[in-house]
C-alpha cells in the first residue's frame, strides 16, 4: 500500500507533469507547422500558398 501511494505520487510529480506538458506542446506545435507549412493536399496548399512562400517553407 505504501509503495503504491509512493508510485502514485511519483507519477503525478510536478516535474513529470511539466515534462509531459512540454512534450505534448512540442508535438502539437510540430503537427501545426507540418499542417500549415508542409502537407501537400491541394486545398491546404492553395490556402496556405502565400504563407509557405513568405515563411521560407518549400512550397511547390
Amino acid at each position: 500500500m505504501t509503495s503504491l501511494n509512493h508510485a502514485q505520487i511519483q507519477s503525478n510529480s510536478p516535474s513529470r507533469v511539466r515534462l509531459l506538458t512540454a512534450l505534448f506542446g512540442a508535438v502539437l506545435g510540430l503537427a501545426l507547422i507540418t499542417l500549415t507549412g508542409h502537407v501537400q493536399a491541394s486545398a491546404l496548399h492553395s490556402a496556405a500558398h502565400d504563407v509557405r512562400h513568405a515563411t521560407g517553407f518549400p512550397c511547390h
Partner: peptide, 26 residues
Amino acid sequence: LSLIFTMLTYTGYALILLALMSFAED
C-alpha cells in the same frame, strides 16, 4: 487565409518554443 495560416504557423512555433523554455526553466 494568409493571415489565419500565419497565425497558426506562429502558434505552432510558440508551442515548440514554450516547450523548450519550460524545459530549460526546470
